[in-house]
Structures are given as structure tokens and as C-alpha cells.
Design a protein around this nucleic acid. Structure first.
Lengths: 204, 204
DNA sequence: GATCAAGGGTGACATTTGTCACTACTGCCG
DNA sequence: CGGCAGTAGTGACAAATGTCACCCTTGATC
């Protein structure tokens, strides 16, 4: 019997996924969580009894996201293997997930019957990556440095150069420079396009 | 037996929801669809046999979104009642949904067991609105006209005034004017903030 | 100690964006 | 018919944005 914990912030989806997996006779959902924090709690509670084999988790969740969660699980519960199930095929997310030692990475638009299959394969020691992402996982890495990322994020929220400068304690001209660099590196036409591109790639 | 068609673009979620509802003995999933177009096809196919009682649909889907779909269903399949299930609690979405004659509006973070309950109630003639939205459904309506919406959308994708003008066959100055109006109406500081605000409200 | 890269900054400049006032052409509505 | 709201456009102007060349520290690295 494969022991599974499920983390997903949308309760309806959480419940539905649990129902889906519970149909499988060799898989048992032993806990569900609405965020990363709750997932860690569940793993801790179970630690005294039988270990949890698989943690299935979304990425974008309140409190504690799936990527940070994966790193903590690797450190504190090395026997538990993490499978990410997310909407986002962003290259940067997959990269970070792999760096966090994740054993599976599926998109929410893979067919439903493949979830149970993926769980079994990961439980058996295999690594499962959504095929549409497997190829270009390691091309282009994040071309933006920390400053550029911070500034681009704020710009994408509608702040002016002046406002960004104040928030980050930088001169307005400096903000302009970093933004200009970022726009150039991403081959965008302006800050809005640059923000969109970076976000798409998971580089924020 | 309540006859249900399900539309949702994320295959995994679609499958999971289907599994969830199929556990109910009085509900039967007779078709699933990955977008609005497919949902219409399914309704058309079923029309010759018994009618479909309930169409459950997401809003943001490729090809044909849930709100447009709802309007078409009201026109072409008046016997079928529509239930929206979406991530987004945006006021504008709910408003448009209600205007389209939708009978149910649930958020994806309502507990899973309430989905079947909502289906039964809508099938019985009731109207079911997610309680956290029911109250402020009819405050503030969309202050943007069609032109302003179109232009703001394109601006939010990073297009320049010139580019927007070309796409919409308008002079650059005209684009500037509409954008300026939109920014003013939304009390934003610039196009980016205006875009964010409008999007948040479901006014796009 | 010289050199060099990174991080932060300045000033000048062209372009884009945002604001406003005012014009022109519809299509209603009284 | 006159008035008026909605849609499109123009011109002028101020402010914000984007680009570039160049300066100054500070810490490596040779």
C-alpha cells in the first residue's frame, strides 16, 4: 500500500484529487493539507507511525509554497518522495523543483489516469517529469540578478521608477538602469513585456 | 438521476471532479469537455436523447470561456442549468455570470462535499451562490466601456500606444486618450496599475 | 600595488506616456 | 429641427521611461 499525503489550496480540487486517488486499491490517502505548513504538520504526525511514501503538492499555495516545502521535506523527511502537480509549466519552476530533489513533476493538464501511474512509478524509485517539459528543462537559466528581479517585480505591479527607488533605497536613475538592463536581456520592448516574459519563465 | 456535463481545461482537475461526482449514486457524468466548444458539442449530441440537466463549467478556458458558454447555453439549451466553478471570486465575473442566467456559482476553494450538494440544489430549481460572494455581488459595476477594455487589455500585454493603434485601427492619440480615461476612472497612476485593478475586478 | 569586475550612481538625451482642451461626425430623443 | 451623448481625432505640453556614456567605491585576484 502506497501511503500518500496531498497538499493543494483549492479545497474542491483537493477533495477531487483525493477521491480520484482513493479509487486506486493500492493507494491510500492518509492526510490532506491546504498549504505547505499543514503538509509538514501531517508528515510530522505520521512520522511516529509508518512513514509517508509520497507527498503530492501544488506549487502556488498560501503560507508555504510547494517548492520551499519540497526542500524542507528533503531535509527533514528524506524517506518521503515529493511529486509536484501544478498549473505552471514555467521552466524556472521545474528547475527549482529538480534542485530541491523532487521526484515527480506533473502539469494539471495531464490526463487524470496518469496521476496514479506517476505515483506508482515514483514510489517504485523512478523519476517522472511531464514529457512536454522534460526536454527544455535545462536550457536558458535565469539571466536576471537579484536587483533586476526585485525591481522588475515592483515595476510589474505598477510602481514608478521613483516609487521603486524609495522602496529599495536606490536613486531613481539606478532603477532606470537596472530596468533598462532587464529589458535588454529579455529582449523586450518595455517593462511590461519584460515582466510578462520573466514571469512566464518562472524567473521572478 | 441527475445528468451532468463537466467542462474544465485542466485534464487532471477535470478527471478528478468527474471521479468525485461519480461517487454519488444519483449523479451521472454523461460527458466531459476541455473547453466551451466541446461542451456545446456534447450538449448538442445529447439533445436527441434525454436532455442534460446540469452543465458544470470553469470560466477561464481556451477556445470558448465559461461566461460566453453560459450565454449560449441559455439561448440554445434552456433546459440545461449552468453551474460555474472557478478560481476567481472577481465581482465582475459573478455579475456577468448572473446576467447570463447562471444558476450556480462556486469557488474552487469551497469544500469538496458541497459540489454534489450544489448540483442537487440547482437540479431542484434553487440558485446557489458561493456565500463569500453573495453579498457584494451588485456593488460597483464595470466602469469601462468596450474600447477602454480592449485597449487596456492590449496595454497590459506590453504593447505600446502605437502598436495598439495599429491593431485596432485607431490613431495613436486616440489610444492615449482612452487609456488616460481608463486610468482616471480606475484612479490608477499608470497603465500597469490600471490593468491590474481592472483584472482583479474581472472587468477585462 | 595595479587591475578588474560588480554594484551603485549621475547627467544628457530621445521617446513614450499621460493630460487636456477642442474639433468633427454620427445617431438618437424630445 | 436643436441638443446631446458616444466615438474618433488633433495638437500641445509635462512627466515618466528607456538608453548611453561615464564616474566612483569596494573587493577580489594577479
Amino acid at each position: 500500500m502506497i501511503r500518500v499525503v496531498l497538499a493543494e489550496d483549492q479545497a474542491l480540487v483537493l477533495g477531487a484529487l483525493a477521491a480520484l486517488l482513493d479509487l486506486e486499491s493500492d493507494i491510500s490517502i492518509i492526510a490532506t493539507a491546504a498549504n505547505g505548513r499543514q503538509a509538514l504538520d501531517a508528515l510530522t504526525r505520521q512520522a511516529t507511525e509508518a512513514p509517508v511514501d509520497i507527498l503530492i503538492t501544488d506549487i502556488e499555495m498560501p503560507e508555504l509554497g510547494g517548492l520551499d516545502l519540497a526542500e524542507m521535506v528533503r531535509r527533514d523527511f528524506p524517506a518521503t518522495r515529493v511529486v509536484i502537480v501544478t498549473t505552471f509549466g514555467r521552466a524556472g519552476y521545474l528547475r527549482r523543483a529538480l534542485e530541491a530533489g523532487v521526484r515527480g513533476y506533473l502539469l494539471k493538464d495531464t490526463p487524470a489516469d496518469q496521476l496514479a501511474a506517476a505515483v506508482r512509478r515514483v514510489a517504485g524509485g523512478e523519476r517522472v517529469i511531464a514529457p512536454e517539459l522534460a526536454l527544455n528543462a535545462w536550457d536558458g537559466k535565469n539571466p536576471l540578478n537579484q536587483r533586476q528581479r526585485d525591481i522588475l517585480s515592483l515595476a510589474g505591479e505598477g510602481l514608478s521608477n521613483r516609487a521603486i527607488g524609495q522602496k529599495l533605497h536606490l536613486a531613481e536613475g539606478t532603477v532606470r538602469n537596472y530596468l533598462s538592463e532587464a529589458i535588454g536581456e529579455l529582449q523586450a520592448e518595455n517593462r511590461i513585456e519584460a515582466y510578462r516574459l520573466a514571469r512566464q519563465q518562472g524567473w521572478l
